[in-house]
């Protein structure tokens, strides 16, 4: 197991190189002259040249890349053009944590409701409950994020006045964005749990459990769910990644000052170091989460660990 963890961490190295390379090249692939765009529309040639010199754009490409990596490793992602503060500070002061908070609550909601719905569906196959839950799941999957967010605001904030319209701070602020963010995940997890559970309940060892005189509930939770969860864990990990993407839209709709909004704002302001930094942080976060998921998959499914 230890060997596996070490190997799995080693495997993230090429991914990290790819990610940093992609983020780095972004600066060079954008149409036009990055320095010119960043210096602003009214900059004179000297200012542009100064900007180019500051950004190190006159150095050979590989040198720039290694400098970028080296700086990133020490936590230096440059300064924001918009606010002149260090990018890492902008990200980690509060925004990063807000988004992570949102993603975790969203994932938790998705897992909770997804699992419950999936189990109910699987154990009552073709019943009214099963059919309605799966129809709801289908809706949850097909609804666009922003539309769902707007509808929730309309219903709970505008009409009923139960929850705040936008912003961040108290737990009441978290509810609607988390629901918006988690719905699609819940739907996917529900469908996945259902099919995985149905497959497991058909296995020989479930019949063995019944033949031992184990009660229905225990068969479902102890013998069924534990095995059914194995494929679900993978989906949860992938969901967390797409949640980060969803955060961009959700944070905009609910005016939450997280990473998503930071990206949008920075793109608008042509704040390239900021965009670069945020994307890099998101990508690293995604890689880390997936590594954790892979490792926990191993822990759950002991069979994979055979060799």
């Amino acid at each position: 197991m230890f060997l596996y963890i070490v190997r799995r961490i080693f495997q993230t190295i090429p991914v990290m190189i790819g990610v940093t390379l992609a983020v780095f090249l972004m600066m060079h692939l954008i149409p036009g002259d990055a320095a010119k765009i960043m210096a602003g529309e009214n900059a004179n040639p000297e200012q542009v040249e100064q900007m180019r010199e500051n950004l190190g754009l006159n150095d050979p490409l590989y040198e720039q890349y290694f400098r970028f990596i080296g700086n990133a490793a020490t936590g230096d992602l440059g300064n924001s053009i918009r606010t002149s503060r260090p990018v890492t500070q902008e990200i980690f002061d509060s925004r990063f944590w807000i988004t992570v908070q949102l993603a975790i609550i969203g994932t938790a909601l998705a897992v909770l409701f997804g699992l419950i719905a999936g189990i109910i569906s699987a154990t009552r196959k073709y019943s009214f409950a099963d059919v309605s839950l799966m129809v709801i799941a289908l809706f949850g999957l097909s609804m666009p994020n922003f539309w769902l967010g707007i509808m929730l605001i309309y219903l709970f904030s505008v009409n009923l006045g139960w929850l705040p319209v936008a912003g961040w701070g108290t737990w009441e602020h978290m509810i609607l964005p988390a629901i918006t963010l988690g719905t699609a995940g819940a739907a996917i997890i529900a469908r996945m749990t259902r099919s995985s559970m149905l497959e497991v309940l058909d296995q020989d060892y479930i019949r063995t459990a019944y033949a031992k005189g184990v009660g229905d509930k225990l068969v479902i939770y102890k013998h069924g769910l534990r095995n059914a969860l194995i494929p679900v864990v993978t989906v949860v990990g992938l969901q967390f990644g797409s949640l980060l993407g969803g955060a961009v839209v959700t944070e905009t709709v609910f005016a939450v000052n997280g990473l998503g909004r930071l990206i949008i704002d920075s793109i608008r302001a042509h704040d390239f170091p900021m965009v670069q930094g945020t994307i890099l942080v998101c990508a690293v976060l995604f890689v880390v989460v997936n590594t954790i998921v892979d490792i926990s998959y191993r822990l759950l499914n002991k069979r994979v660990d055979l060799n």
Binding site: Y205, R207, T208, A209, K222, R226, N227
Partner: peptide, 16 residues
């Protein structure tokens, strides 16, 4: 009354 099944590979729970 208890029972033994054919497939020892699949008749035991893999996670216990």
């Amino acid at each position: 009354i208890s029972m033994i099944f054919q497939e020892p590979m699949t008749s035991l729970n893999p996670t216990l």
